[in-house]
């Protein structure tokens, strides 16, 4: 619980602050753009569907690459850390989905006042699952590179395959290659595929990091 508390307190607060800053920036950019042309897309949707997932991926990498060795150095087991990190990834994804939803509410108000048009965005559940899987994929790939060095490259196509399925339910995040119609046919059942992707990424992280050596750092 101690590890979870530290992760949730520090990284969730940090992520929310980053999101707030990016939201303010997006609003400013939208106003600047409106001076030159009509606004037809949601700037916040660009952030949440394109940029935010990479941020979540980075958090996943940071948690395993930077914080796991620190936890072990402070006498915590990998198992304790991975339990906390798994729970933390759910809480962070939930918090960021909430922030995304709040952003859409506030942006919607601004757009209504300014009489701007916004394109379609995904459901909070779709954002939650996308953030969840991307964070878990970040953890998985970081564990693979930390443990196997350059051999970690083999985790990238696996991670990519897991991450890309979550984007199907979010407009503006890109369509799946080869199987464009499947998400449409599955409807909301597609979310179950995202949950499966999360579980696979998490299982991969545990399998790789469970008895990973803590190597000497150069800093």
């Amino acid at each position: 619980m101690k590890i979870f508390r530290v992760l949730a307190k520090t990284l969730t607060a940090y992520s929310a602050l980053v999101a707030a800053g990016v939201f303010a920036f997006a609003v400013v950019v939208t106003f600047i753009v409106s001076a030159f042309r009509g606004v037809e897309i949601s700037a916040w949707n660009v952030v949440t569907s394109q940029i935010a997932r990479w941020f979540l991926l980075w958090v996943g990498v940071y948690v395993i690459h930077n914080l796991l060795p620190i936890a072990v150095a402070h006498g915590r087991t990998r198992r304790e850390f991975l339990v906390a990190a798994s729970g933390f990834s759910v809480v962070l994804a939930l918090a960021m989905a909430l922030v995304a939803w709040l952003g859409f509410v506030v942006e919607g108000g601004i757009y209504a006042v300014m009489d701007w048009r916004a394109d379609e965005h995904g459901t909070p559940l779709a954002y939650f699952l996308m953030f969840l899987v991307w964070c878990a994929v970040g953890m998985f790939c970081a564990a693979a590179f930390d443990r196997f060095g350059a051999g970690g490259i083999f985790s990238v196509p696996v991670g990519l395959a897991l991450a890309v399925v979550t984007t199907a339910g979010i407009p503006g995040s890109g369509n799946l290659p080869f199987i464009r119609n499947v998400p449409v046919l599955l409807g909301s059942g597609w979310h179950a595929v995202s949950v499966l992707a999360f579980l696979i990424a998490l299982a991969g992280t545990w399998a790789v990091a469970r008895d990973m050596p803590i190597r000497l750092r150069t800093t």
């Binding site: 930077n66 990998r78 198992r79 750092r217």
Partner: peptide, 24 residues
């Protein structure tokens, strides 16, 4: 000791550089 919470909590190793500190 390995992955034993009771034993690992009683050990501290600091190698050439501080393992328990991130440079950032």
């Amino acid at each position: 000791v390995f992955e034993n919470a009771a034993a690992m909590g009683k050990v501290c190793l600091v190698r050439h550089s501080a393992d328990a500190a991130d440079k950032g």
